[in-house]
Amino acid sequence: MDAQHLDLIYLIIAAAVATYATRFGGYVLITQLKNIPPRLEAALNAVPAAVLTTLVAPAFVYGGLDVAAAMLVAFVVGLRFSTLRMLLVGWLAVMVIRHLIF
């Protein structure tokens, strides 16, 4: 196994430890702390949406017109349907754009 691949293994282990910390952390926290300050709770609540948005917005702006169009279509589908349907429709849209239109 070369050094670069070993780095990836370490990265996965670190990610696993970080994830386990979140799954055990609340239990530790609740036995130590009775109340979480409201502003801290609001900040913690915002974390996942804020992080995931940073993976969506730049892809939409810089990912090319075909990707942006597929994301728009998927967004409309996502207002009513599941993530799985969004993926299916988004994928169909990008395939149509790439292979039938251009």
């Binding site: 996942p48 949406a49 995931l52 948005t53 993976l55 969506v56 892809a59 939409f60 990912g63 075909d66 990707v67 597929a70 994301m71 998927a74 967004f75 996502g78 207002l79 993530t83 969004m86 993926l87 988004g90 994928w91 849209a93 990008v94 395939m95 790439r98």
Partner: peptide, 17 residues
Amino acid sequence: GLDVLLPVYFLGLVMSF
């Protein structure tokens, strides 16, 4: 068309919030 799946998946996650 596999490259479009990750951004759409993340979009779906954001919308779930």
